[in-house]
C-alpha cells in the first residue's frame, strides 16, 4: 500500500503496479547487518510443566495462544483424570469434544478436547490421535458428564467409537443412517439422502433425481481436497505454491 501512496498510478503504468524504482547508489562494501536475535521464548508455566509430566506432550501454540497438548490414546483416561482432579490443574469443565478428519495422516482422526479450569481461569486444548483401522477412543463420560452427547456426535458424524460410553448411538442423523457425513470422503450433497425417510414409509412426491440436472451431479461424490494430492501437509507451503483459489465453492 505504501507504494500506491508514494507513487500514484500514472496513465503509463498498469494500475496497481508501482513504477520501477530508480537504481539506488550501492552502499560501501560491508558485511550485511546481522539480524537481531529473536527473543528467547518465555519459560513454560508451572502448570504446563505439570501436565507435561503426566504424559501429555506440549505442542506449539497457535494463533489463539491456548496451551495445546497431545496425548496418546492409551494414556488419555489417566491424564484426563489428573487434569480434572489435580488441584493445580483443576479442569472442572469439558467445553467441547471435536473430531477432525485428516485422511492423509496417520492416525487419521484427531479428537480435540477443550477444557476449562474455572478455578484458574484457563482453557487448554488436548488432542488424541485415533487411527482409522481401529477407530476407538476411551470415553471420558465418567469424568465429565457433558462428554455424553459430544462423543455421540463425534461417533455419528465421524465414526469414532468411544469405549466405555454407556449409550453410543447416533444423535444428529437418523438412527439407521449408514454413513458418517463429516468424513472428508463423504460428499456435501450426500448419498441417497432420502433413505431414512423412504424406509420410514414416506412418500416422495417427485422423483428423487431432478430431471433438469445432469444425472451425475446428484450422485457423483465431490473431491473436497481441491485436487491437492499432498493433503494437509506442509508441502504446498514450503514449495511455494500459491494457494488454490477455492472460489465460490458452492457444490
Amino acid at each position: 500500500m505504501a507504494d500506491a501512496a508514494a507513487n500514484p498510478p500514472s496513465s503509463s503504468n498498469p494500475p496497481g503496479v508501482a513504477p520501477a524504482a530508480p537504481p539506488a547508489a550501492l552502499p560501501p562494501a560491508a558485511s550485511p547487518p546481522t539480524p537481531a536475535a529473536p527473543p528467547p521464548p518465555p519459560p513454560p508455566e508451572p502448570w504446563v510443566v505439570a501436565v507435561a509430566a503426566l504424559g501429555a506432550e506440549p505442542q506449539p501454540a497457535t494463533q489463539d495462544g491456548l496451551a495445546v497438548f497431545r496425548v496418546e490414546r492409551d494414556a488419555w483416561p489417566s491424564v484426563a483424570r489428573a487434569l480434572r482432579d489435580d488441584a493445580a490443574l483443576s479442569f472442572e469443565m469439558l467445553l467441547d469434544v471435536a473430531g477432525v478428519d485428516f485422511p492423509k495422516r496417520r492416525p487419521r482422526f484427531e479428537v480435540v478436547y477443550h477444557l476449562w479450569s474455572l478455578r484458574h481461569n484457563r482453557v487448554a486444548r488436548v488432542k488424541v490421535g485415533v487411527p482409522e483401522e481401529d477407530p476407538t477412543c476411551p470415553s471420558v463420560v465418567d469424568l465429565w458428564g457433558t462428554a455424553d452427547w459430544h462423543e455421540r456426535e463425534c461417533f455419528d458424524l465421524l465414526g469414532v467409537k468411544f469405549t466405555g460410553h454407556p449409550d453410543l448411538r447416533r444423535i444428529l442423523m437418523p438412527d439407521d443412517y449408514p454413513w458418517h457425513p463429516l468424513r472428508k470422503d463423504f460428499p456435501v450433497e450426500g448419498i441417497d439422502n432420502s433413505i431414512s425417510y423412504v424406509r420410514a414409509g414416506g412418500v416422495l412426491m417427485t422423483r428423487e433425481l431432478d430431471v433438469d440436472r445432469p444425472a451425475g451431479q446428484d450422485r457423483t461424490p465431490v473431491d473436497l481436497s481441491h485436487g491437492d494430492p499432498a493433503g494437509f501437509t506442509d508441502k504446498a507451503e514450503t514449495e511455494g505454491e500459491p494457494p488454490k483459489s477455492g472460489g465460490n465453492g458452492h457444490p
Binding site: 442423523m173 457425513p181 463423504f186 460428499p187 456435501v188 450433497e189 450426500g190 448419498i191 439422502n193 432420502s194 425417510y197 414416506g202 412418500v203 416422495l204 412426491m205 417427485t206 428423487e208 458452492h250 457444490p251
Partner: peptide
C-alpha cells in the same frame, strides 16, 4: 442448504 441433511423443498413430500 444444498447438503446431505436438508430436503430440497417440501414439495418432495407434500403438495
Amino acid at each position: 442448504y444444498r447438503n446431505y441433511a436438508v430436503v430440497p423443498g417440501i414439495d418432495r413430500i407434500l403438495p
